[in-house]
Simulated assay, not measured.
Amino acid sequence: MPTYEGLVVVLGANGGTGREVVARLAHHGVATRAVARSERKLADIVKPGTETAVADVRDVESLENALRGARAVINCIGTRVGFANTGKGVADFFGFGEDGADAVDNRGTVNVLNAMKRVGAEHLVIVTSMLINQPLNPFSLMMKPFGDILTMKDKAEKAVRASGLRYTIVRPGGLTNQPPFQKGIKVAPADALSSGSISRADVAEVCAQALWTPAAYGKTLEIVADDTAPVSDWGAFFASVPPDAIPAQATAAGV
């Protein structure tokens, strides 16, 4: 069982992937603070020993309060569009409203980075998406009218890489609700995969292992399930992907 010294804040802890991350961190005995936008969203995920906080990535002050004392942050927040975001008007249905991809995925990530620096958090693990730089992929084309989500996630990733913080970017394929460790995990560098799915529980385990495995630092990982055995050597798993090449002139506005 790995040991991890310090508090980990999970943003979007009420979502499907966020819940799994909280569960995997608890399994590993990691001190965790689960964060969502309301107490109601946290009510059914609170477990003994898990701290909670209310914050919104669009509100830097609330983020700073929620992140205070954290060593690391796992950001599982992502925009919901279409029928997953019903009842909030046409703009949010199409991902261009106040809950849209630019506000949440893009500018929200910049807010997270700024808040982390102000409170002294040192490592961000962020869950984004496969297909970010594959504009001709049918799924990418389908999502373009919905807040241009993949472009906004690309902007968020660039801000993370330019932030100067330790980071790991995790890009899963299509997400399922299968139990963890039923299959192996295929891992590849950014923009190498174009299809596949993976369980949220396995994504959560990748995020957790990235906290204490140095071979995961400074990398963008694309992951999907495959028919190999479940991962047993996480160091080798992360080491199979090269570090990101970050241009010397890279900058992130507001970071």
Rank of each mutant, 00 (worst) to 15 (best):
R171T: 06
G173T: 04
R68M: 14
T168N: 04
S140Y: 10
F96A: 03
A55F: 05
I169G: 02
A103Q: 12
A101T: 12
G147N: 08
D99W: 03
T128N: 13
G49H: 05
N137C: 12
G108T: 00
N65W: 12
V57G: 08
T86Y: 14
G147F: 01
L150T: 03
E122M: 09
E64Q: 15
A55Y: 04
R68K: 15
V110W: 04
K88V: 07
S129W: 00
P172H: 03
L175E: 10
N133V: 07
D102R: 15
G87C: 12
D59C: 07
D56T: 11
V54M: 13
V110D: 03
N177P: 02
N137Q: 13
Q134I: 02
A53R: 05
D154G: 15
G97A: 00
E64L: 14
V110K: 12
G97M: 04
N114M: 14
F93L: 12
R161T: 15
E157V: 13
R107H: 12
R80F: 06
F94M: 00
G108D: 03
L150M: 13
V60C: 02
E122R: 13
A70P: 08
A70M: 05
F94Y: 09
I45D: 04
A70E: 04
Q134H: 08
D154P: 10
D154Y: 14
P138F: 02
A66H: 01
L141W: 11
M116N: 08
T50A: 08
P138G: 06
S163Q: 01
V112S: 03
F94H: 01
R71G: 01
R71P: 02
T176R: 11
E61S: 15
N114K: 15
P145A: 09
L175P: 04
E122C: 02
K88Y: 14
V125R: 06
T86I: 09
P135W: 07
A72V: 06
R161K: 15
P138W: 06
R80H: 08
N137V: 11
V170L: 13
D56C: 10
G95M: 06
A103E: 11
I169P: 07
M130N: 09
D105W: 01
I169E: 03
G100M: 05
T151R: 12
V60H: 09
P138L: 02
T176K: 07
F139H: 12
G120S: 07
I45Y: 09
D102V: 11
K47I: 04
P172K: 05
F139D: 09
T128S: 15
Q178W: 00
G49K: 10
D102G: 04
K153R: 14
F96R: 06
A159S: 15
R80G: 09
R71I: 04
A103P: 01
F146L: 10
T176E: 07
F83P: 14
V54R: 10
L131A: 09
I74K: 05
F146M: 06
I74Q: 00
V112M: 08
L124R: 04
L63S: 04
A156M: 09
L165R: 01
V104I: 15
F139C: 01
A43S: 15
E61H: 14
L42E: 09
I149Q: 12
G95W: 00
V127T: 06
N114W: 15
T79H: 07
R71V: 08
K88F: 14
L67I: 03
F146A: 00
D92E: 02
A162W: 01
R80E: 02
K117E: 00
R166L: 08
N75M: 12
